[in-house]
Amino acid sequence: MDLMKYVEGEYAIENKFPNFKSGDTITVHYKIKEGNKERIQQFKGVVIQRRGSGNTETFTVRKMSGTFGTERIFPISSPNIDKIEMNKQGKVRRSRIFYLRGLQGKSARIKEKRF
C-alpha cells in the first residue's frame, strides 16, 4: 500500500480548498471548455457526501434549481476546479445526508453551526 501512496503523492495536487464537510453550503467554481475558450461556472449547494480517499476522493453537491434537485459529483483533485468558496457551515449529525433528497422547502433547511 505504501507504493500506492507514493504514486498518488507524485500526482497529488496541493489542496488549496477550505476544509468543508457534508452539511456545508459551498460554491464550486469550475472551468468549462467550449471549443478553445475556457470559462468559469459556479455551482452552489449543500455538500451531501465526501467519498473515497487520496487522489480519487470525490464530493457531491446538491442544489435546488426551482423545484428540481440537481446533484453534481466533483473529484477533489480535479484540475478543472478553480476554487471552492465556503458559504455556510451546517450542523448535521451524519456524514452522508442523503435524507435531504426526500425533503423540500422548510424541512430541507440545515441548521447553521454556532461557534
Binding site: L3, V7, Y11, I13, G54, S78, P79
Partner: peptide
C-alpha cells in the same frame, strides 16, 4: 499488481 488509482 500494486493497485488502482486515477490520474488527471
Amino acid at each position: 499488481k500494486v493497485g488502482m488509482t486515477s490520474v488527471f
